[in-house]
Amino acid sequence: MLEAIYGASCLAILAVMGLALLRAVLGPSAFDRLMAVNMFGTKTVLLISVFGFLTGRPDFLDIALIYALVNFLGTIAVLRFFEGRKTPACYDEPAEEQKE
């Protein structure tokens, strides 16, 4: 019974991952992509946790723990490195598109 529930949760998380992936691929702005990556990180934590229970070996939560701890580093890095830029490279700017 519980096995089926774990499996169903895994599927649901995978579905959410797929949707987040679509958002990351489609864009349109860099912030959308960043948000998708962030969300993907959380879903990875959940998938790894539930997968441990699905296979009956939940001692590997350390991997989920490290994602929970360090995942926001990516967001910080982006904000930090592209903060001061006048034309943030992370943008879909119409002007930049026209240049080509």
Partner: peptide, 18 residues
């Protein structure tokens, strides 16, 4: 856009960890 490619590479890494 290289920035977006780096973001997607991050997702790639998450997926491969899973």
């Amino acid at each position: 856009k290289l920035f977006c490619a780096v973001m997607l590479a991050g997702i790639f890494s998450l997926l491969s960890a899973c």
